[in-house]
Amino acid sequence: MWKFSVRRTLIMIPQLILLSIIIFVLAQLMPGDALSGQIGPDVDPARLDEIREEMGWNDPWYEQYGRWVGGVVKGDFGDSFRFKMPVSELIGQRIMNTVWLSIVTLILTYLIAIPLGIVSGRYNDTWKDQLVTGYTYVGFATPLFIFALVMLWLFGFKLGWFPTSGSVTPGLVSGTFEHFMSKVYHLILPAFSMALITTYSTIQYLRNEIVDTKQKDFIITARAKGASEKRVYNRHILRNSLLPIAAFFGYEITGLIGGSIFIENIFGFPGMGQLLVESITLRDYSVLTATTLLFGVASIVGALISDIILSIVDPRIRIK
């Protein structure tokens, strides 16, 4: 098994290199740069060109790429042009917020998906199943950003149950219980909004697994042994259906990245997603490439985790 994991990890390296090149080139191709927004009557265009030359922005892309990669492997993503601080520091402030948001969303996703998927799969084609599948269709059809806006308006502004922006109440001392509770309080609404929508794929996946497993021959074998329906479900159907769900876990991370970009912007939540959108509008290349790269790495690692989990839980793969 570890052989498989090592090989699978090695495959990641060319993926990462390719990813970094694509990100870098795409960023270069974007029209304008960090200075183009500052062109005005009082700025001498010649001076801007000078700055560009100084920053090395006129060099061929591969030279710029070489410089950039050289820094990245040392953990240096360059300086943010707009925030006037090292990108790594900037990301450092934000990244934990996104990680927490993702973890809470994931937990909520599973808390919703597993019971609903089980009910829907076990009682397929009854009203219970239709109710759950109805919900997954709505989840599938509703755009996340509209749903999030509705949630924000209803629970944030109208009812006032939850804060409408930020990740923590300002002025609290980090490390205290109040600080922690405030963080949780700020997380709940964005995480819930995201989980309620993104959970549909997990519910459907689990439902289909259960419906599939129910019709397998070995379920009949289990009944023929004299196992009660309860035992058939717990021992054979659920166990066999939940394993692929566990393997799906890594891919959930990829889904979360897309979601967090919308959610963080709508809820004014200072995380990586928000930073990414800001850096795009401001043409803050060093930040943009760094955040995109991290998101890309997260998806690749997510896929890796999925494959490794699958190889652990499924004996048919494990044995190799």
């Binding site: 397998k216 021959d217 070995f218 009949i220 074998t221 289990a222 023929a224 054979h236 166990r239 066999n240 394993l243 839980v313 499924d314 004996p315 048919r316």
Partner: peptide, 12 residues
């Protein structure tokens, strides 16, 4: 049963 592969639980 007829088919010994499908009538055994693959994960047990």
């Amino acid at each position: 049963f007829q088919d010994p592969l499908t009538s055994l639980n693959p994960l047990m």
